[in-house]
Every structure is written in C-alpha cells, then in structure tokens.
Write a protein that binds this DNA or RNA. Structure first.
Lengths: 168, 168
DNA sequence: TTTAACTTTCAGTAAATATTGAAAGTTAAA
DNA sequence: TTTAACTTTCAATATTTACTGAAAGTTAAA
C-alpha cells in the first residue's frame, strides 16, 4: 500500500506528461513542468536533461515553450552564470495562466471564424441552417469566454466561492 | 465583407478540425463533426468521404470514434439499408457530452494517480514537499471535477443561470 | 580582446499518428 | 442458400510531430 519516493515521482511525472499530451501540450513539456513542480530548488537545463533523460535541444525548446506559456520562469543563482528554472507552486495561479493562454490561442481564433460566418450570403434553407448552427456555437463560445475571462481576472476567494456555490 | 456559402462552410470545417487537434481529438474527427453539424439531413459514409475527400477507412474509423464519444448517432432511412449519421444540434448538450468523456478519460485517471501519491513514504523535506504539491493538485482537481459533474448533470436553466451569475 | 561557460538553433532522424485501399466480414433481400 | 449491398478491419504508407546532437551563437569573466 506504500510507495517509495522515486517510484511516486516517476509515476507523477509520467501522469503529468500524459495529461499534457491529451491537452495538446507535448509530453516532454508536461514532464518538465511536473519535475519543476515537485522540486523546491530551481533546476538547470542539465538537471532537467539528466532527470528526464532527454537531449539538450529538447530540454531547451520545451523549457522555452513553458516560459512562453507563462508558467515557468528563469531564476539566477547568486554568483552563478547558469540559468535555472522554476514554476509557481500555486495550482490556482497555474490554472489561471493555462486558461489565459488557451483562451488566446484557441478560443479567440475560433470565435473570429464563427463571427465571420454570419457574413455568408444566400437565402436558401441550407444557408439559414448553417447560420443558425454557427450562431449558436458563437453564442455559447462567447458565454464561456466571458466566464473564463472573469475567472482569469478573479482572486482566490472569488473562485472558491463560485465553486462552492456551484456545487451547492 | 460577404462570403459565399461554400467558402464559409469550408472555413468552418477547417476551423472545427483545427480546434479538434488542439484538444486532442483528431482533425478528421473534428471535420466530420462539423460537417454533420451543418447538415440538416443525416449523411452516409459515402457522403462524408466525398465532402471531405477522405478514404472509406478513415471516414468509418472516425465516425465510429464520434459514436464512441456519444456525440454522433446512427440514423436509418426508411427502406434503405445504408447507415446514416447525425449529430445533435444542441450546443450545450454537446459540451456536456464532451465534458463527460474528458472527465472519464483524463481527469479520473490523473486523480487516481494523485491520490496514490499520498502513499509515498519517507520523512525528508523532499518527500514532504512532494506530498504537499500533489495534495494541492488533488484538491484542486477534485473541486473542478465536482463542478464538472454538477454541470454534466444539470439542465439548461441551471447552466445559464450560473454563467450569468458568474459574469455578474 | 580572447576564452570558456553557457544557450540556442536546426538539419537530420526517429517515433508517433493518421490515412489509404483493398480484402475480409456481415447481413438483408432475392 | 446465394448474392450483393453494405461495413469493418488492418497491413502498408504517408504525414506530422518530437527529439537528437553537434555546430553556431551569445555573453560574462579573465
């Protein structure tokens, strides 16, 4: 029923990587994030390479990507030239950041396309149906987008209050 | 500023396919779903193949996958032996179904791993930190999972009320 | 400056994923 | 039954995506 640290660590990193791929983030990116999450100290590229058995190029590119997503940041150690990396340990803040990015990268482009669809011309039933469906999608997407925006801007208390109320 | 139906249709199918890949669903699956969404009539495998220019095997497999997800269903036309396929036009119901499946396929497995992590033994600071982080993730995941569950079981009114309240 | 510690890039390769099409399987009607 | 309309499977192939490692680029210290 118990488990050694190394085994647990391995399992967690694996699981986080898998979750990553299911969500369109790549595996290595998820694994690096997991590793930084459970590490109290900031890690260097070398250390990441070593722990995950991946190449320098791979480590570097995925660390960059995590920085782009705004969920990993650089840390310099006094007197050291090397770069180290950490990720915030606040899960809510992480969720917020991921929401922010996905909203920007995925929801917004699709919303723009859906809006455009109202410009389709023609008075056939086919066109009418097309516009109805895309308008519905647009309406729904807008609602979700608005809620997401609220979440992104909200503070901790607001979020947990909403969750609580939501679950009655 | 206006647009022909065929152009709009093409754009929409493309966008829906792209959104699909960003969400771990494959492109063809997204495109087939888009096509069924905007089609009032149920379509046959042949028609899907023709419209999207994909092979029989591809069409068949992805239609199956959509059925597995519970978002496409078979429809038989009277006197016809061939199978036809449709998808519900209710966007909220679609969202609910997708949430249900993702919850089952992704959230649940990761939650089980996170729970397991409390079984890690050892009294070092490292282990303590590991448990803290994974416990936080577990707590957050549980909350979201609960809210999702509520959403999945809820009706239309509840959902829009929540969204409204949420957006103040 | 030069050097050396470090980071980034990228062409080549490997791995994973999606797609094809023809053959095998199934089942309603003749 | 047989036939033929239809659906499913799956080995081969193509496409996409990820990864490597060495070379090029950068920058602090000597």
């Amino acid at each position: 029923m118990s488990m050694h640290y190394d085994e647990g660590k391995e399992k967690f990193i694996q699981a986080w990587g898998t979750l990553g791929s299911a969500w369109g983030i790549n595996k290595a990116m998820g694994q690096i994030h997991a590793l930084l999450l459970i590490s109290e100290e900031a890690l260097s590229t070398e250390e990441v390479m070593e722990e995950l058995q991946i190449s320098r190029g791979n480590a570097n590119m995925n660390i960059r990507a995590l920085i782009d997503w705004g969920i990993v940041s650089k840390a310099y150690k006094p007197g050291e030239r090397k770069e180290y990396f950490t990720t915030g340990k606040d899960v809510l803040e992480l969720a917020r950041q991921v929401s922010r990015e996905r909203r920007r990268r995925e929801i917004e482009p699709v919303m723009r396309v859906l809006e455009e669809m109202q410009q389709v011309e023609g008075d056939t039933a086919e066109v009418a149906h097309f516009k109805t469906v895309t308008k519905d999608l647009e309406g729904f997407t807008k609602q979700v987008d608005g809620a997401l925006d609220k979440f992104i801007r909200s503070d901790k208390n607001w979020f947990f209050q909403v969750l609580m109320r939501l679950m009655k």
